[in-house]
Lab assay of single mutants.
Amino acid sequence: STGEEYIAVGDFTAQQVGDLTFKKGEILLVIEKKPDGWWIAKDAKGNEGLVPRTYLEPYS
């Protein structure tokens, strides 16, 4: 699937089932941008889950 690459600007630990845990500096592939501010993203290992958009910045 296609998506946009974003870099994590902080650590995030999953708070509920379906969230994706990530560390600062990780590159995430954003698959869907939901209007509530929680985006669906995939990490380098292929894990998929919800992430808070405030922790992400476009990666170029």
Rank of each mutant, 00 (worst) to 15 (best):
G46P: 00
A8S: 07
K34Y: 03
K24V: 04
G18R: 12
V9L: 04
L50F: 05
K45A: 07
L29Y: 10
S60C: 10
V17R: 10
K34E: 09
P58N: 05
V9I: 04
D11M: 04
K24Q: 06
G46S: 11
T54Q: 14
G46L: 07
A8F: 01
L28M: 10
E57S: 03
K45I: 05
Y59H: 11
Q15G: 13
A41Q: 00
P52W: 15
F22Q: 01
I7F: 05
Q15N: 15
S1I: 11
I40K: 12
F22R: 00
E4S: 13
L56H: 00
L50C: 14
I27S: 08
E26M: 08
V17F: 12
E26Q: 12
D36N: 08
G18H: 09
K42M: 04
K42H: 09
T54A: 14
F22S: 03
A44N: 08
D19M: 15
Y59A: 07
Y6Q: 02
V17A: 12
S60K: 07
K23C: 12
P52E: 15
K24L: 04
A14H: 13
W38N: 15
L50E: 04
Y6K: 01
V30M: 04
V51T: 07
F22T: 11
I7C: 13
T13H: 08
V17K: 04
L20T: 01
Y6T: 02
E26R: 04
A8E: 00
W38C: 14
E48R: 07
K23P: 04
K24N: 14
K45C: 05
V9E: 10
A44R: 07
L50T: 06
L29N: 08
T21I: 08
D43W: 00
I40H: 12
R53A: 12
K33N: 09
Q15K: 08
E32K: 05
G37C: 11
G3C: 13
F22E: 00
P58Y: 05
T21D: 10
G25A: 04
I31H: 10
K42W: 02
E26G: 07
A14D: 05
G25D: 09
Y55N: 13
G37Y: 08
V9A: 12
K24A: 04
K23Y: 04
I40A: 05
Y6P: 00
E48F: 13
P58C: 05
L28Y: 08
V30I: 13
Y55D: 12
K45D: 07
E4V: 06
D11C: 14
W39A: 14
